[in-house]
């Protein structure tokens, strides 16, 4: 837009600023609450300016647990979430890359059958197949460990399709040139397909990491051992303190910490992420 229209500019800026405020206000409240002590958080009106207990609360969160999740420190829950989210994101990408590779580049019997089988899983998210999946995971002895937390969430039709589309845009001559150069299938995959899908992998990683990080229902179901709690379900547990009032300052500190890794991932991979979603030049 090169034209200058002051009124339109003012309006769009107002709308944008309002939008930012709406998003930012709860985060500000969270931050403020995380910097007060328990006493202040039980008095009305609730504070709108930061207090002086931020570092103290932070230290507490990394050493001890809160509320119903008292047995595990917030730091440990963050670590659990991180491991789960990484396993899901990396696992999904690895599996989808390989299955897209198979579907696009190999002629095997029932190829289209497999393609449709993957497609159908789109209609069966975890929530729908939760009981049979639970049974399978339980029978495999994967309750209360990282495998159980991540493996059932790894299969991904969406990512498979995305990589399939990416591979389909890669000209056949590249495969042929690689064949003449003496690259076998896995060489071609590793040396050419994967590097060429780099930006798409990054974009997908961001999306999948956040997807994994935000998982609530599945971890809730399969973890009974509190040492395996993830941060998202942990926060919910903190609210259900048996006798005492919820320790809002610590809960808010946990919430604040829980927001950090997704932000780090998004900011860190922002450039690749945007290129991955927009770039078509191959």
């Amino acid at each position: 837009m090169i034209e200058k229209r002051p009124l339109a500019n003012a309006i769009s800026h107002t709308v944008l600023i309002l939008g930012v405020l709406v998003v930012a206000f709860p985060i500000w409240v969270t931050f403020v609450a995380a910097s007060h002590d328990a006493v202040r958080m039980t008095q009305v009106p609730l504070p709108l300016l930061p207090g002086g207990h931020f570092w103290e609360n932070l230290k507490y969160a990394f050493s001890k647990g809160v509320g119903n999740a008292r047995e595990i420190s917030v730091g440990m829950m963050l670590l659990n979430s991180l491991i789960m989210a990484m396993m899901i994101a990396v696992g999904k990408i690895a599996i989808s890359l390989l299955s897209a590779f198979a579907i696009v580049y190999f002629r095997f019997p029932f190829r289209m059958g497999f393609f449709w089988m993957i497609f159908i899983t789109l209609m069966l998210p975890v929530e729908v197949r939760i009981i049979p999946t639970y049974k399978v995971v339980a029978d495999l002895g994967m309750l209360d460990n990282y495998w159980g937390l991540s493996i059932p969430l790894i299969a991904s039709a969406t990512a498979t399709f995305m990589f399939r589309q990416v591979f389909l845009t890669i000209p056949d001559e590249l495969l042929e040139a690689a064949r003449i150069d003496g690259a076998g299938p896995m060489r071609f995959f590793k040396d050419i397909l994967v590097p060429m899908s780099r930006t798409n992998i990054a974009a997908l990683f961001v999306i999948l990491f956040i997807y994994g990080w935000n998982q609530y229902l599945w971890p809730l179901l399969i973890t009974t051992d509190k040492s395996m709690y993830t941060i998202v379900m942990g926060i919910k547990n903190m609210l259900e303190a048996a006798e005492e009032a919820p320790e809002w300052h610590l809960i808010m500190m946990s919430a604040l910490l829980a927001m950090l890794p997704p932000i780090v991932v998004v900011v860190g991979m922002q450039k690749l992420f945007i290129r991955g979603l927009t770039e078509t030049e191959k």
Binding site: P171, E173, L174, E176, A177, I192, M196, K282
Partner: peptide, 10 residues
């Protein structure tokens, strides 16, 4: 040598 060169872009 291919018509579209088929160079490895990365």
């Amino acid at each position: 040598v291919f018509q579209n060169y088929a160079l490895y872009p990365h």
